[in-house]
């Protein structure tokens, strides 16, 4: 393999990591609060607001039901607006983030709903505000579930980033398709796949490590 190819591979790896890291951070930044709102505005919950809850749930379900490949194309105008272009790694971040937000919102909502209602009651009984209940009770207790769900989302994002790459976003997926598929250079394809497998393994290990770290009390 030529030096030039290795450089290309490294660049593609970097682009993939860059896209996934940035889009999962952004999606968490937006999706996690949405998940918290989804949970706490449920009926009888600490910020009960059935109307808001229903509306938000509908939007999130709607987003979630759009296949990623369609989302990719459908939001091109939005991408242009935000990034100024619809091709390139930065442009890929917009659909990746949009696709991950509803997943993360649901993951967070789900993890919060696993926390025993009794704990929330205990918090209310000791005079905690809704915000304190979220910060001091719900989030710490739900953290193992949240981290676990985030790991899954990030790993899926690697897959999606390959798709985004194929339509001009760069990254490993782009490379694999350009060389492996269009030029029949099988070895490049295989190396790309190997790198992806290692990347996913490492992420899963890291995710498991953090999950363990935040739930070590559940010995």
């Amino acid at each position: 393999m030529s030096i030039e190819l290795i450089e290309q591979l490294l660049l593609a790896l970097w682009e993939t990591i860059y896209m996934v890291a940035l889009s999962s951070s952004l999606a968490t930044f937006i999706g996690a609060p949405l998940g918290i709102i989804l949970f706490t505005t449920r009926q009888h919950n600490i910020l009960a607001h059935p109307l808001l809850n229903k509306a938000l749930a509908m939007i999130i379900n709607g987003l979630r039901s759009i296949p990623f490949i369609i989302l990719l194309v459908a939001i091109i105008p939005l991408t242009r607006l935000l990034v100024g272009t619809s091709i390139g790694t930065n442009a890929a971040i917009v659909p990746l983030t949009m696709g991950a937000i509803p997943f993360i919102a649901r993951i967070v909502e789900n993890a919060l709903s696993e926390v025993s209602q009794g704990l929330v009651e205990a918090g209310l009984a000791m005079g905690a505000t809704p915000l304190q209940i979220i910060r001091k009770i719900l989030l710490p207790e739900a953290m193992p579930g949240i981290v676990n769900g985030l790991t899954i989302t990030i790993i899926s994002l690697i897959g999606y980033s390959a798709m985004a790459g194929a339509v001009g976003g760069g990254g490993l997926g782009d490379l694999a398709i350009r060389y492996g598929y269009q030029r029949f250079e099988m070895n490049i394809m295989l190396v790309t796949i190997a790198i992806l497998i290692i990347l996913v393994q490492l992420l899963q290990m890291l995710g498991d490590y953090i999950t363990n770290k935040v739930s070590k009390h559940k010995l």
Partner: peptide
């Protein structure tokens, strides 16, 4: 007023993610 009324429950309702000390200190950290 609730801060001045303690309550205990059948199912204890402790934070699993917090140590004994942190659990007991919770009302004060609020």
């Amino acid at each position: 007023i609730r801060r001045k009324i303690g309550m205990i429950f059948q199912q204890f309702n402790l934070l699993n993610s917090a140590s004994v000390y942190e659990n007991a200190a919770l009302p004060l950290t609020l």
